[in-house]
């Protein structure tokens, strides 16, 4: 699915990266723990998180994530928003909670990391 599909499914607001919404996302992961994102994340990941400080943006950039979705209506802090804008990292924000956000994307066919790896992709 594309980031635009993600935006519509999650009724999300685009914080930055509007020009990249037609890019495809093939795998998603959710965590508020950036330690785990660094350990288990993968390139191209759609990162769903409730951690809205600059570390979430830095972590996403470090692991070559495709985009970040902030759940529970959170927005990036000033440093995170500036960095995402500089790096062209798309950021979405949805008012939905984490569990529902993941469930909606998963049920629409966006696999998690373990599924993605099991598919041998």
């Amino acid at each position: 699915m594309t980031l635009r599909d993600v935006k519509e499914i999650l009724q999300a607001q685009v914080v930055c990266g509007e020009s990249r919404l037609d890019e495809e996302v093939k795998v998603a992961g959710a965590s508020d723990l950036m330690s785990d994102v660094l350990a288990f994340g993968m390139p191209g990941l759609l990162l769903l998180t409730g951690l809205s400080n600059a570390q979430s943006v830095r972590t996403a950039i470090i692991i070559d994530a495709k985009a970040v979705v902030y759940v529970r209506g959170k927005m990036p802090d000033a440093a995170g928003a500036k960095l995402a804008d500089e790096k062209g990292l798309p950021i979405l924000s949805t008012k939905l909670m984490m569990y529902k956000s993941c469930g909606l994307l998963y049920s629409r066919g966006l696999p998690g990391i373990s599924d993605f790896l099991a598919q041998g992709r």
């Binding site: 508020d32 723990l33 950036m34 330690s35 785990d36 994102v37 350990a39």
Partner: peptide, 15 residues
């Protein structure tokens, strides 16, 4: 609170 301190850092550097 910063999203760190899960005890994954050093093993992840080695990995």
């Amino acid at each position: 609170e910063m999203g760190f301190g899960a005890g994954m850092g050093l093993p992840n550097i080695r990995k």
